[in-house]
Design a binder for these strands. Sequence first.
DNA 1: AAGTGGTCTAGACCACCGC
DNA 2: CGGTGGTCTAGACCACTTC
Lengths: 235, 235
Amino acid sequence: MAHKYETVAADIREIISTSLAPHDALPSERDLMTRYDVSRMTVRAAIAKLVDEGRVYNVHGSGTYVGSIDLFSKTPKLTSFTEDMTSRGYVASSRPLALARIDADEDIARRLGVPVDTECTHLRRLRLADNNPMAIEDVYLPRTVMEIEQLHLDQSLYVQLTEAGHEVHRAEQEIQAIMLSEEDSRLLGVPNGSAALSVERVSTSRRGLVIEFARTIYRSDRYSFHIAVTRDNEK
Amino acid sequence: MAHKYETVAADIREIISTSLAPHDALPSERDLMTRYDVSRMTVRAAIAKLVDEGRVYNVHGSGTYVGSIDLFSKTPKLTSFTEDMTSRGYVASSRPLALARIDADEDIARRLGVPVDTECTHLRRLRLADNNPMAIEDVYLPRTVMEIEQLHLDQSLYVQLTEAGHEVHRAEQEIQAIMLSEEDSRLLGVPNGSAALSVERVSTSRRGLVIEFARTIYRSDRYSFHIAVTRDNEK
DNA sequence: AAGTGGTCTAGACCACCGC
DNA sequence: CGGTGGTCTAGACCACTTC
């Protein structure tokens, strides 16, 4: 383990999961200082990380406590379809439906932040969970990010993007309810006109460059979206 | 301004908005130390806050940079319907549809974490934006949180809960696409069978007590849900 | 009043980036 | 190589909660 605060954080995680219940108090920061023989700032860095993970919360003047959350704890994290399905207990797979070079229409260009008619790569896939259709995904990549010839359909797109120097760091997502088109209903194996969840995502690198625009349409009978939010009572 | 790091953060925000563009570099931390005559930790606390707000990002070994424009939504924040509509530029209002004391059924009891048949307060409201129907909201409160007689329909529910010592601090939300019932379609003024966004929310206090369970059904032609997510490339 | 987390100082060395 | 952010020390005082 590289840094001290990480080892402290890891140890506190262990303590929490083995001997503490939600809303139990952690040892005080000064206690933890002597216990791990580190400075208070290191203890606070460790706790700050755990707070960020949603595992504990602070109460000024009182103590640090174990969070109530369970499985759905995490602060919203950007996950790939595969990661998402795996964490839900499914085996993810996919079937390519289309792969083509296209010119960005107005909508796609706006999302990608490029001029209309910019050449892009379009990948359309049926996404499966335990071999059952779960979603239809359309991904649009500017040619400057990845050429169509570079794309390997049998590998994780995120891994390929990372290897090409375009690691996704942040994304804005827009979630809507839509009614499925006839084609999409057929692909997903649900009645025509069913409601579905549309998640549109614009992903950017750490430097703020737009890497992809993706629209994923999930069948509503099998999929829902979880997020945890906190209320910042600050300015 | 109470704390030094807040005044530093406020000043940096000012610098950013008046004289820096996205991806421009901020002055270095050591520079800011001498500029504001504070310790480096204070500078870092200020920058940490700005990072949390999504205004800047760090690149180890290189510098701190202004984040890309994307105006809003950093870490998802819990907002009331009124706050949500206000930030979208609408005037929010509501029309009560029902207010009653009920016994929790299995579903509601599970969400509230109370035994079945626990007495609860149920409030159903039509929520309007610029006087147009936008959503239907059902809120369930355990009696221990708020008695039906204490509830004033003309006041913000969150304000009343806070004043009663039940400040909402955190919530878990589940977002689904559903098909509207005939009654709900009529109330919202959309065709029967339209798709809609259902947001179910379990709100808890800082101490982890469940305060409310709410289900809000938004018309899909007028409403979408925005969230920003980051990818933590850590263990 | 005692104990807690929140802020702050004035240093130090390490890891990484770009030239 | 020099400059940057990342981690860390060993203190200090403040603000808040609890009794």
